[in-house]
């Protein structure tokens, strides 16, 4: 119920910001006029009553601002559907200082602290107007030439501003991107490596088991062929057994991965641990590799000559 009221309230602010702004204005003006009227009733002369009401109540705009702030609407509710350039706002930190920011332009959303997070509500401040640079500043220098030779001139430029100013952590954007993605890339490389290794092991395993099984059943297969079985039937039989083996392996693997990848969720981006196409793809690949591994023994079984097989013992 409360949630519903909240959603409805937000919705109204998004859809009808103009109407709500007008209502707010009407309501606040009604307050001031009622207050003035009451003062007049108490014997205060009209002009003096109006003056006192305005002083006691404070600015209408500041009231409206406070209302928006109480709803968390100051930044965007105010600017929805309007051109924000030229308007001003302040933040929690600058409110007491009575410092206001003027909007001089609007830019697109951009990821900020973390690639995984949605772009946060962000405003950028001109660096010349930055009052607090305790944590240092990051400059982006664009060059078409060799960036190695550029560092010297950048350092010289910094030194010319202040000899004691250190220039640290110089890197190219490519390096920066690589560094910020390094854990993920390493993790992906390691897990792919292990995955590939597991696939090869599975292939060797399936091949070994099927070759062994066919080897042990040369006699039986020879008799089947002698009694009229077609080579293709033998082939299908051995492949069918391979498919069973692979199927059981895939089923166990899927169940295990559904359990284990839950703990991996934090490392994934834009992907759920239970992503159907990824799981299906991996299962299909494993199955195909197993069938490929089973093909050799199956083919060999179908080429068995009945006479040789019977003489085999």
């Amino acid at each position: 119920m409360k949630l519903f009221a909240r959603l409805r309230s937000w919705f109204r602010w998004i859809v009808k910001p103009r109407q709500l702004e007008n209502e707010m204005e009407t309501e606040v003006r009604f307050h001031i006029e009622s207050y003035t009227a009451d003062l007049v009733c108490k014997g205060v002369p009209q002009p003096e009553a109006m003056r006192r009401a305005r002083i006691d109540f404070g600015g209408i705009e500041s009231h409206k601002d406070a209302i928006r702030a109480s709803l968390g609407l100051r930044l965007w509710g105010e600017f929805v559907g309007t051109n924000p350039v030229g308007k001003t706002f302040h933040t929690e930190h600058t409110e007491e200082l009575d410092d206001r920011y003027e909007i001089i332009g609007v830019c697109a959303d951009a990821k900020y602290a973390d690639l995984r997070d949605d772009p946060p509500p962000t405003f950028y401040v001109l660096y010349q107007q930055q009052k607090d640079a305790r944590h240092g500043m990051t400059f982006e220098v664009r060059t078409s030439g060799d960036h190695g030779t550029l560092i010297g001139s950048i350092r010289a430029a910094v030194q010319s501003v202040d000899r004691d100013l250190p220039l640290i952590d110089v890197r190219t954007q490519t390096e920066q991107i690589k560094a910020s993605m390094a854990p993920e890339r390493l993790f992906a490389a390691v897990t792919s490596g292990f995955g590939g290794l597991a696939l090869i092991l599975a292939m060797i395993g399936v091949y070994g088991i099927m070759a062994h099984a066919v080897g042990r059943r040369v006699n039986e297969i020879g008799i089947r062929l002698a009694l009229g079985a077609q080579a293709s039937q033998v082939l299908r039989m051995v492949l069918g057994e391979t498919a069973w083996l692979a199927g059981i392996g895939v089923a166990i693997g899927l169940a295990a991965s559904l359990l284990l990848t839950q703990s991996l969720a934090a490392m994934l981006f834009g992907l759920k641990p239970t992503d159907p196409s990824t799981l299906a793809g991996a299962a299909l690949l494993l199955f195909a590799i197993a069938m490929l591994a089973g093909w050799g023994p199956a083919n060999r079984a179908s080429l068995i000559q009945p006479m040789e097989a019977l003489r085999h013992e």
């Binding site: 119920m1 009221a5 909240r6 109480s70 709803l71």
Partner: peptide, 12 residues
């Protein structure tokens, strides 16, 4: 007024 709007926003 901020309190009134907040209370209304909260459905109270």
């Amino acid at each position: 007024y901020p309190a009134l709007y907040r209370l209304e926003h909260q459905g109270l």
